[in-house]
Amino acid sequence: MEVRTIKVFTTVDNINLHTQVVDMSMTYGQQFGPTYLDGADVTKIKPHNSHEGKTFYVLPNDDTLRVEAFEYYHTTDPSFLGRYMSALNHTKKWKYPQVNGLTSIKWADNNCYLATALLTLQQIELKFNPPALQDAYYRARAGEAANFCALILAYCNKTVGELGDVRETMSYLFQHANLDSCKRVLNVVCKTCGQQQTTLKGVEAVMYMGTLSYEQFKKGVQIPCTCGKQATKYLVQQESPFVMMSAPPAQYELKHGTFTCASEYTGNYQCGHYKHITSKETLYCIDGALLTKSSEYKGPITDVFYKENSYTTTIK
Rank of each mutant, 00 (worst) to 15 (best):
E162C: 01
T313C: 15
T5Y: 14
T91S: 05
I6H: 07
I124Q: 00
T192R: 11
V304I: 10
L37H: 13
T292V: 08
Y234N: 03
L151E: 03
V304K: 02
L81Q: 09
L37I: 10
R141V: 11
M170E: 01
I45K: 13
Q230N: 10
V188E: 06
L17Q: 13
L151F: 03
K280A: 13
V21D: 12
K280M: 13
E281L: 02
A132F: 02
K93R: 14
T169Y: 01
P131W: 04
E162R: 02
Q134Y: 09
K127W: 06
Q20S: 13
L88F: 10
G288N: 06
A177R: 04
N89F: 12
R184P: 01
K201P: 03
M26K: 13
N100Q: 15
P60Y: 04
L254V: 09
T10L: 15
T226D: 13
V8C: 13
G267Q: 15
L212W: 04
M26S: 14
Y113W: 13
D63F: 09
T159L: 08
G272I: 00
Q251C: 07
Y72C: 04
N268W: 04
H176R: 10
V21L: 13
F56W: 07
Q134G: 04
G299D: 03
G267D: 15
P130I: 05
T192Q: 11
F242M: 02
K280R: 14
C225K: 02
Q122K: 01
I277F: 04
K54P: 02
G288P: 02
M209P: 04
I301R: 03
H51F: 04
S86L: 09
D41N: 10
G288V: 02
A136G: 07
P130Q: 08
T76N: 10
V236S: 03
H18W: 11
S181L: 07
L163W: 07
V21C: 14
S294H: 15
N49D: 14
T211K: 06
L118F: 11
D13P: 06
S181C: 12
Y297T: 03
Y297I: 08
N187Y: 04
Q122E: 02
L186H: 05
Y214W: 10
L235P: 02
Y269L: 15
C285Q: 10
L133S: 03
V3W: 10
Q123T: 05
S213P: 08
L254P: 02
D165G: 11
G33M: 01
L88N: 03
L119Y: 06
T76E: 11
Q196M: 11
E296F: 13
N49Y: 13
E2Y: 10
M24Y: 07
E162H: 02
V3N: 14
A117S: 09
V304Q: 06
V21H: 13
G299H: 05
Q175D: 07
E253F: 06
Q98N: 10
V3R: 11
T292I: 04
L290E: 13
N16A: 09
T302F: 03
K201Y: 15
Y274A: 04
T19F: 12
T258R: 09
T199M: 06
Y284K: 03
L153N: 06
M244A: 06
I223Q: 07
E281G: 05
L81T: 08
K233P: 02
V8Q: 06
K92R: 14
S86K: 13
N49R: 12
Q237C: 13
H48A: 14
Y269R: 15
G164N: 01
H18P: 05
T266I: 09
E162L: 02
F9L: 10
K255S: 07
V67I: 13
G143S: 03
P34R: 08
R139V: 03
G143N: 04
S279K: 02
V8F: 02
L88E: 05
K158W: 01
T282V: 12
N89G: 13
T292E: 12
F174Y: 01
R83G: 03
L37P: 05
T116Q: 08
T10V: 13
N14S: 14
Q251N: 11
Y306E: 01
L291E: 14
L291C: 14
K106S: 14
A69C: 14
